[in-house]
Amino acid sequence: MDTQDAIIQALVSMADVLVEDFDVVDMLTGLTRKCVDLLGISAAGVMIADPSNVLHVIASSSEEMRVLELFELQSEQGPCLDAYHSGESVHHQMLLTSPATTWPLFTQAALDAGFHAVSALPLRLRDTTIGALNLFTTGRMPMDTGGAVVARAFADLATISIVQHRSTDQLQRINDQLSYALNSRILIEQAKGIIAERAKVDLQEAFNRLRRYTRNNNLRLTDVAAAAVAGTLDSTAWTPRATAPTPPLPRSGPSRPA
């Protein structure tokens, strides 16, 4: 598999978070690993802000990376914090021990850990920045343009997964309601066709009869339509004056043993 395929596969698998399994930490840990595998960098880490805007280290590709990120938070300086607070990316910065360096404490710690360059991307959707993705390299070569684009896509996808993540129950419930509503609509159209053909009337009249039968027998339209499609609906449903109280959904045999 070439790099391009690997990247696409990684993006698809990130989008493929199973509902019952969704775990933000797992997803972000996977993200840091994919960054290291595919972007030609040495280490990656993610920080996420809590509701009071305090950043926390959530995932790291290695233990030394985690220690360095914790240090960044303690010393209150570093690229991840800058990306989070500004909402803008920090592009490949070489780490040099000069007096003019932006983050003196962080730079020293990063150099001690063997890193020479760093990038940071905000995890941002619309106006909300929820955290940042940190990318570190031990070499001095900057990430290529393609790598930077893919890093951006990784960060965007991670952000969407987190921001859009409702409770699994809630999502599943909405999806069930969507399926039910679509099915119901289609069953009703099929039932209209069945009644139109049986009663030799047009579709509008078939619908009127379906509704009238449903109302008169205090049933649900979807249930009556489903019975029509299943072939278990009483013929009074499509005869013109179906006002006599009839057993709602007659079955072929007796409803209880004699």
């Binding site: 391009q4 993006l11 684009v149 996808l157 969407i160 859009q164 909405i174 309601q177 969507l178 509503a181």
Partner: peptide, 29 residues
Amino acid sequence: VDQIADGIVLAGLAAGWVMAAQGATTPGA
């Protein structure tokens, strides 16, 4: 690759839009 990457992100956004629309509706409808 970046068009595909953006496409995957957009497909996620569009799916979220469908969920937001259906989630704001009375159950059954």
